Amino acid sequence: MSTNRYLTVLGFDYGSRRIGIAVGQTFTASARPLKVIACDKFNAPDWASIHAVIQEWSPQRLVVGVPYTLNGAETETTLAARHFSEALQARYNLPVDLIDETLSSIAAEQAISERFSAKSKSKAKPALDAVAAQVILETWFAEYANTESL
């Protein structure tokens, strides 16, 4: 394994109200939720907060989850997530991979259900988007991180 495959990667669960962010390493192929960033009243990302996360973690690659309907059709959110990924690439000049995240929120809800009692689930709810970003990143690791194209 070449050293260029030992990368820090940030994963994003894009939403018009909130963006979940997770961080992971290709060396361990594991990720953890970092934070959730709110979008403004016009559904624009808080670029200052995203910039702070990118500065803190110095990733070599970014992964954005793109949602589709269960039958594979695109939605407004699909197009918005693609636009967000293009903006990330333009702002930070980093490789950005897109991955289907259709069921990541369901997987995140299941993960939170397993980690928290019924009483504390409401407190964990805001972390849902960051856990979804973790699921997105772990899916990317499972599907792509071991390829020679990195």
Rank of each mutant, 00 (worst) to 15 (best):
Met1Glu: 07
Met1Leu: 13
Ser2Leu: 08
Tyr6Thr: 07
Leu7Ser: 15
Leu7Lys: 15
Leu10Ser: 00
Tyr14Gln: 06
Gly15Trp: 07
Gly15Glu: 06
Arg18Cys: 03
Val23Trp: 00
Gly24His: 05
Gln25Leu: 13
Thr28Asp: 05
Ala29Asp: 02
Ala31Asn: 03
Arg32Gln: 08
Leu34His: 00
Val36Tyr: 04
Val36His: 00
Ile37Arg: 11
Ile37Asp: 06
Cys39Lys: 11
Cys39Glu: 09
Phe42Trp: 04
Phe42Ile: 08
Asn43Gly: 02
Ser49Leu: 11
Ile50Arg: 06
His51Lys: 14
Ala52Thr: 15
Val53Ala: 14
Gln55Pro: 01
Trp57His: 15
Trp57Arg: 14
Pro59Cys: 03
Gln60Arg: 11
Arg61Ala: 10
Leu62Ile: 12
Val63Tyr: 13
Val63Asp: 07
Val64Pro: 08
Gly65Gln: 05
Pro67Leu: 09
Tyr68Lys: 11
Tyr68Val: 01
Tyr68Thr: 02
Leu70Tyr: 01
Asn71Pro: 01
Asn71Met: 05
Asn71Glu: 12
Gly72Gln: 05
Ala73Met: 08
Ala73Cys: 03
Thr75Pro: 09
Leu79Cys: 11
Ala80Thr: 15
Arg82Asp: 13
Ala87Gly: 04
Ala90Met: 14
Ala90Pro: 00
Tyr92Thr: 05
Tyr92Asp: 12
Leu94Thr: 08
Pro95Met: 02
Val96Cys: 04
Val96Asn: 11
Val96Pro: 04
Asp97Cys: 04
Leu98Thr: 04
Leu98Ala: 15
Ile99Phe: 04
Asp100His: 04
Glu101Val: 09
Glu101Asp: 10
Thr102Leu: 06
Ser104Ile: 06
Ser105His: 04
Ser105Gly: 08
Ala107Asn: 13
Ala108Ser: 07
Glu109Trp: 00
Glu109Met: 07
Glu109Gln: 10
Phe116Glu: 10
Ser117Ile: 11
Ala118Val: 02
Lys119Ser: 09
Ser120Met: 14
Ala124Leu: 07
Lys125Tyr: 08
Lys125Asn: 09
Pro126Trp: 00
Ala127His: 05
Asp129Ser: 10
Ala130Thr: 03
Ala132Asp: 05
Leu137Ile: 02
Glu138Tyr: 01
Trp140Ser: 08
Ala142Cys: 01
Tyr144Trp: 10
Ala145Val: 04
Glu148Trp: 09
Glu148Ala: 13
Glu148Asp: 11
Leu150Ile: 08
